[in-house]
Amino acid sequence: MDTINTQLLLIAQNQPYPLLFATISGSHLYGFPSADSDYDLRGVHILRLPDVIGLITGDETVECSQIQNDLQLDLVTHDVKKFFGLLLKKNGYVLEQLYSPLIVYTTPEHEELKQIAHGCITRFHAHHYQGFAQTQWRLFQKEKPPRVKPLLYVYRVLLTGIYLMQTGEVQANLVTLNQHFQLPQIPDLIACKLAGAEKSALTDSDLAFHQQEYQRLFQVLEEASNNSHLPDTPSAKDALHDLLVRVRLAREIPSGEERN
């Protein structure tokens, strides 16, 4: 794993723009990577002022898929302004990327952003997780035979959403989540995925059980949102604005110099 982390760090540092942070998302974050799972690297880059204020602008989003030394990588970074905007739009993906404990590259501003972003979490983030769960459930139903992977995603997003509504904390790891929720089917599903048997067929009784669980947890998430003590609207816009300005301007000051 140390070798992989070194490779990921080198890839992150070789991006065209300086980074605020880069973390690992996807199945590695969710707690059920297969042996051949690719690495989903997500983060925030910082466009310089000329790339923002000029007629020729920099890339708001950088995407890259590559295989390097047998390491399959999917990288996506957003410019700091775009990422902050997504935080204010009740986007669960960016929260999970920000708070991912699998950190490849970090800065002091990353730590500051994690503190500020608590003010971006609202009870309406439940809508994000409900929508994602519905999409994954449709995918699960369409595949013949149905695969375990989309089913695990269904459970993961529903439990992440419920936990967020109940605690205000972002937790995307299904293994960790299930220490709290204690769903007996989760360990077997993860074991099946990790064993490479994710295309194994499920019986009709299995399908009926998982459909009941999907509907039950979807309702639990709805009720958790209605009963949550989280605010209706984010309160962090001013703090995000201040951080954005400081981050942008700081990259324009040569090291060791001070702005008048």
Rank of each mutant, 00 (worst) to 15 (best):
Y129I: 00
H128Y: 09
P231W: 12
L49G: 03
A22P: 00
R259E: 14
L71Y: 15
D59T: 10
K89F: 09
Y105H: 08
T6N: 12
V157F: 00
S225V: 01
P146H: 13
K142Q: 14
T135H: 10
E109S: 10
Y129K: 02
R251I: 01
G119T: 06
T135C: 07
N178M: 08
L41S: 09
L152I: 10
C64P: 03
Y129R: 00
T106G: 04
L73D: 00
D79V: 08
T203C: 02
F83L: 04
Q166M: 12
D238Q: 15
R251T: 07
K199N: 09
E252N: 05
F181C: 11
N5D: 15
L41K: 03
N260L: 11
E257V: 06
G43Y: 02
P234L: 13
Y153R: 01
E143T: 15
N69A: 13
P184F: 05
V44F: 02
E258C: 08
L41W: 11
P254R: 14
T233H: 13
L55R: 13
L71C: 15
D36I: 15
K114D: 05
L202I: 04
A201D: 03
V104G: 09
T122K: 07
H118E: 09
S27M: 13
V154C: 06
E213L: 11
L243N: 01
Y99N: 06
V157E: 04
N5G: 02
I46R: 00
F140L: 05
Q115M: 08
W137P: 00
D232L: 13
P231S: 05
P50M: 03
I11V: 09
G58E: 07
V245N: 09
G161I: 00
Q171I: 05
D59V: 08
T167A: 02
D238S: 14
N14T: 05
V76P: 04
M165L: 09
L75S: 10
Q212K: 12
L55D: 06
N227A: 06
S34D: 03
E222P: 02
F84R: 00
L47D: 08
T6D: 12
D59C: 11
A126I: 06
Q185R: 05
H28S: 14
P150C: 09
K81G: 12
T135P: 04
L19P: 00
Q171E: 14
L19S: 00
Q166D: 14
V76I: 13
H110P: 03
V157G: 00
H210Q: 14
Q15S: 03
T203G: 03
P231G: 06
I4S: 08
D51E: 07
I116M: 02
H118D: 02
V62C: 14
V44S: 04
T122V: 11
